[in-house]
Write a protein that binds this DNA or RNA. Structure first.
Length: 286
DNA sequence: GTTGTCAGTGGTCTTACATCA
DNA sequence: CGTGATGTAAGACCACTGACA
């Protein structure tokens, strides 16, 4: 604030009969003098005008012309420089204080409207997000059901195989894997056929219960989830870095031949469908 | 009775100026 | 005498509120 401006304001206040701080008694500085400053043309007759002067109580509205001009200035700048305020007051036959107060109230109204607008925007954003969330929730429930169903299928299948394995020859799949192994591994595979199956299945069960990535991309109806498209079984290998590629291949066969082959993508590629390994959309699960 | 507008009041912040160590 | 710290007055602004058309 510059001293010159202060001085100018003081001069104006003195000119209009203000006290030095510009906050004189209401009737002196505002209502009463304000009416005096209004032009005579607003009154129907001289008598009305005189009556009005004798009735300082009445609060007078600004004329439409005055409001229009003030609005125009407000659009240009919603805060008044002291010089502009005085100039405007002169132009409109108002007290500088009236102009200041009008701007104050106008800013308050503007703020209120802006708040209302913001509230509406937030409300609509909330509604939109909520509907999206509900949608995701339903999808999530559906996928959970699928997981449950597949778990049950798997259990049934495991039980069936367990019952039959002791008196049966190794499965075709196992034959294939053993043929590809080194001699000592073959003996181990053959010897540990059942235990290995159990281990692998447990592992598979763990992967289902934790991340369920294999199941994610599989639907019993053949409908692979488009929503979880980027997910695949590659995460099964996340904690298997100790395995050699051969072991991984064999375990894959033993684990869940059909399902696994359908959704298997070489983990050595490093990224899957644009998602780097370890950076896949697990957030989709609650 | 409700609503919009004008204006008063009290509090806070900034700036300019005066005073003092 | 110059300088930084401090106090004070004035103006502007805002939130809240009452009065009035």
């Amino acid at each position: 604030m510059e001293g010159g401006i202060v001085f100018e304001t003081l001069l104006q206040n003195q000119k209009f009969g203000f006290s030095s701080d510009g906050f004189d008694s209401p009737w002196l500085s505002n209502s009463f003098h304000g009416e005096k400053m209004n032009t005579k043309k607003e009154y129907n007759s001289d008598d009305d005008y005189e009556n009005c002067l004798r009735q300082p109580e009445k609060k007078r509205r600004l004329t439409s012309d005055q409001v229009q001009c003030l609005e125009k200035c407000f659009k240009e700048e919603n805060k008044l420089e002291p010089e502009r305020k005085i100039q405007l007051a002169k132009e409109l036959d108002l007290q500088p204080r009236q102009v200041a107060i009008w701007f104050q109230n106008r800013r308050a109204r503007c703020k209120t409207k802006q708040l209302e607008k913001d509230y509406e925007n937030l409300n609509s954003s909330y509604d939109k997000l909520k509907s999206e969330f509900d949608c995701l929730q339903k999808h999530n429930d559906k996928l959970k059901q699928e997981v449950q169903m597949l778990k049950e299928k798997l259990n049934k299948r495991e039980n069936g195989e367990k019952d039959s394995i002791p008196n049966e020859l190794p499965s075709k799949e196992l034959d294939v894997t053993t043929q590809e192994k080194e001699p000592n591994q073959v003996s181990i595979q053959t010897w540990s056929n059942e235990p290995k199956m159990v281990i692998c299945k447990q592992e598979y069960a763990n992967s289902v219960s934790t991340k369920s990535d294999i199941i994610d991309s599989y639907s019993p109806e053949g409908n692979h989830s488009s929503f979880l498209e980027p997910c695949d079984s590659s995460n099964v290998f996340e904690n298997q870095s100790d395995f050699s590629q051969d072991e991984e291949d064999n375990l894959t066969i033993l684990r869940c031949p059909k399902i696994e082959y359908e959704s298997y993508i070489d983990p050595n590629e490093g990224s899957l469908g644009g998602y780097p390994i370890g950076d896949q959309p697990f957030w989709l699960w609650p």
